[in-house]
């Protein structure tokens, strides 16, 4: 087998191993999907009545793409926490002593977390449809919308993989990353329109890649009012392209960084 074929086969072995855990510990999947459902319901019914959306769009239509983005960004911490757990339990030591591809543990981990994201997005879409969210565009655009969310989630997984290998304690990975993840998901157009933000926050929100993910998803699912004024800034005017630029940057930086850290990492 060539090196590439070995890398693929080793990565799939690891993916399979991670998915077996998901199957054996159903709580994981239940909580991974329950919390987005909870967010949908809380925002839709608690904040929804108080948040006016420009152009008379229903809040459910406005909210759901935001929840999709928030959930996949939060979900990326699972990648880091799981790797830190493997490190703690000595499994990374075992893997590193095997003649397997150096990148396989990380590729396998990010791939299984991608599978998890596909499932969570599906659950959220169904919940969204039940509370009044609709797709108004073609199948092709809707699929591109899902791909946009998944691509950003996958790139975030690699960032968190690097963090997990550095931090090495699952709980710390979760808590530390939320210090960054909360602001980047909330200082954005995720839950409220950004027009009335204070100037500094507004500029941040306009260039925040999470805003672009949300804006891109809204456009691709048709959750925008026809004829509404264009958002400010190049990033939000070209959200899909802007997101893919971030995806490319994240992968180009964090894949090599994470793989190198993995090679040098020892559990104790």
């Amino acid at each position: 087998m060539t090196a590439l074929a070995l890398t693929v086969s080793d990565s799939l072995t690891i993916t399979r191993r991670n998915l077996i855990k998901v199957k054996r510990v159903p709580d994981l999947i239940v909580f991974a999907t329950l919390s987005p459902i909870m967010f949908v319901l809380l925002f839709r019914y608690v904040f929804g009545s108080a948040i006016p959306v420009p152009g008379g769009l229903s809040y459910a239509e406005f909210l759901l793409p935001g929840i999709f983005a928030q959930t996949v960004v939060f979900g990326s911490t699972i990648t880091g926490a799981s790797l830190a757990e493997d490190l703690q339990k000595g499994l990374i030591d075992r893997f590193r002593s095997l003649p397997m591809a150096r990148s396989a543990v990380l590729i396998g981990r990010t791939l299984s977390d991608l599978c998890l994201n596909v499932l969570t997005i599906a659950v959220m879409m169904i919940t969204g449809l039940l509370v009044g969210w609709r797709i108004h565009t073609s199948i092709g655009e809707a699929i591109l919308g899902v791909l946009l969310l998944l691509s950003f989630a996958y790139a975030m997984s690699w960032v968190m993989a690097f963090v997990g290998l550095l931090v090495r304690t699952p709980e710390v990975v979760q808590n530390a990353s939320f210090i960054v993840i909360f602001p980047i998901t909330f200082i954005a157009n995720t839950f409220v329109p950004i027009d009335n933000f204070p100037a500094v926050l507004k500029t941040f929100a306009e260039w925040n890649p999470v805003s672009a993910v949300v804006q891109g998803a809204r456009t691709l699912f048709g959750n925008v009012v026809p004829g509404a004024p264009e958002p400010n800034g190049w990033a939000l005017q070209n959200p899909v392209l802007y997101v893919f630029i971030w995806v490319a940057i994240f992968l180009a930086v964090f894949v090599p960084l994470a793989v190198r850290t993995y090679q040098r990492t020892a559990s104790r």
Partner: peptide, 16 residues
């Protein structure tokens, strides 16, 4: 989370 058999099979596969 893996069974004894799955553990060994996985390591065997990773030894190619």
């Amino acid at each position: 989370y893996l069974t004894g058999f799955e553990n060994l099979e996985m390591v065997g596969r990773l030894y190619h």
